[in-house]
Design a protein around this nucleic acid. Structure first.
Lengths: 91, 91
DNA sequence: ACAAGGCACTTGCATTTTGCAAGTGTCTTG
DNA sequence: CAAGACACTTGCAAAATGCAAGTGCCTTGT
């Protein structure tokens, strides 16, 4: 399995990179991600679980039943790849 | 729609970036892509059609019923993004 | 105290995408 | 002129994605 295939195993599913891109701007709450990205709620829940399991992001408890999602160092390291893809789309 | 979302619309489907990565090594024939990537034949046919329509690659007729697939300039421009993703997987 | 609403999800089901296996048509080679 | 390579297509099953409604917890207003 190539390195690229390994990367796509983690961030290749629909919405994954868009979620990470949004989190590059700072920690966000579930409802914010949902509204800003227009991602179906069940998909968002699934992706956040997968990305957390993959070490890309982590939950930050805020209070009572609210929390924020923030990128780990591993997640932040995706910035280069995301910027290259966005640049390609503009190019 | 963000730039990233636009990029993923073109190369975000399964196998798309893996096909492009393989073509970065030079033009390849259908059977080679199929064997090297292990991609199902109907998916390969579909992706090649989409990527050609998107201007990422083009068909090069070789002779009789054989042809090769080669990246266009637009396809070659994906090199940076692919390398960043592969680097991320290694990192 | 109690109703109403925000928040972070889950659940059930329809639709779309992906995958497997087998088949098709054309051309070349023995 | 049979056999095989090549580049696909087709039919159907499985998995991923999407839509809409519902759940449980906590806060805020009255």
């Amino acid at each position: 399995m190539s390195d690229l295939a390994a990367a796509l195993d983690v961030v290749g599913s629909r919405w994954a990179l868009l979620i990470v891109e949004r989190l590059l701007e700072g920690p966000q709450r579930y409802g914010d991600l949902q509204r800003d990205l227009g991602v179906p709620t069940n998909m968002l829940a699934t992706r956040l679980r997968e990305l957390e399991a993959a070490g890309v992001l982590r939950r930050l408890p805020l209070h009572h039943n609210t929390r924020a999602y923030a990128l780990t160092d591993r997640g932040l390291a995706l910035r280069g790849a995301i910027e290259e893809l966005a640049r390609w789309a503009r190019g």
